[in-house]
Amino acid sequence: MTLKTWREILAGGLITDAGNTEEYETGSWRSHRSIIDMDKCTHCMICWVYCPDGSIMVSDGKVIGIDLAHCKGCGICVHECPRKAISRVEEALAKEGVQ
């Protein structure tokens, strides 16, 4: 992304486009990854309500996974899930597992 000069930006750091958090990928901050066990999940949506980053992906009323480009790995969903369906894995190990 090309950064703008001081002459091109709004004064005071104001942001006028709504919903722009999507453009800011906070996934790289993560030290731990939350992983949903779909066999245990009842799609109660509690994790969706609690996630501060809107990173619980939902389709047709069902939880389908976690948006790793934005999930900061805070672990709130792990704590809140009443079914203990979400586990927490160190990011480095999770990455190795993927490879």
Binding site: L3, K4, T5, W6, I9, A11, G12, G13
Partner: peptide
């Protein structure tokens, strides 16, 4: 670090 300095210049 991306935009703070530009806002101070403003």
């Amino acid at each position: 670090t991306d935009y703070f300095f530009e806002h101070k210049r403003q």
